[in-house]
């Protein structure tokens, strides 16, 4: 883990506020020259603090009207390895997030679908047929607010 000073933290906060900001914009915000800001950002990238930048898309406008989060418990005696389950579930295009968790479920999945009947198809044909799947709980997303980490 790389050490972060106050300027690094200010840069990361500015990037969380505006992910499209370039080194010159960021430099201005934290009081650094463009090359100095660029060098710090590169260091944060190679140090693994910044993993990348991605465009956030409006799923509904692209035809995916339904987002469902699933809790999945693996059947105790299925004999299926976690790696096999993880590989198979990650290959389903509608599955957009796979988290291994500890608690009343083993995995947390985010699934997007065009509508509820499309979701039912994905659930029955793709997810329930995966090796080792036991209990499944579905919750349909109604609203979502996200914000950056407290840095």
């Amino acid at each position: 883990m790389i050490e972060l000073d106050n300027i690094d933290r200010a840069l990361l906060r500015a990037l969380q506020d505006d992910g499209s900001a370039r080194a010159s914009d960021l430099g201005r915000v934290v009081g650094l020259s463009q090359p100095a800001a660029w060098r710090r950002i590169k260091r944060l990238e190679t140090g693994g603090v910044i993993k990348g930048r991605r465009a956030l898309l409006d799923a509904v406008k692209l035809g995916y009207g339904v987002t469902v989060f699933l809790g999945i418990k693996l059947a105790a005696k299925s004999g299926v390895s976690l790696e096999d389950f993880e590989r198979a579930v990650s290959a389903i295009p509608e599955v957009q997030l796979v988290q291994h968790v500890l608690g009343m479920y083993d995995y947390r999945l985010k699934v997007v679908a065009t509508d509820l009947s499309d979701f039912e198809r994905v659930l029955r044909r793709r997810i329930m047929t995966l090796p080792g799947v036991g209990d499944v709980e579905a919750n349909v997303l109604l609203s979502e607010e996200k914000r950056g980490f407290a840095i």
Binding site: M1, I2, L4, L12, L15, Q16, G19, S20, G47, G48, V49, I50, K51, G52, R53, R54, A55, L56, L57, D58, K61, L62, G148, F149, I151
Partner: peptide, 17 residues
């Protein structure tokens, strides 16, 4: 058209402690 909502940075929470 807001199909592209924003560009977001992806940070590793573990690297932030």
């Amino acid at each position: 058209a807001n199909i592209i909502k924003e560009r977001a940075v992806i940070l590793d929470p573990k690297a932030l402690g």
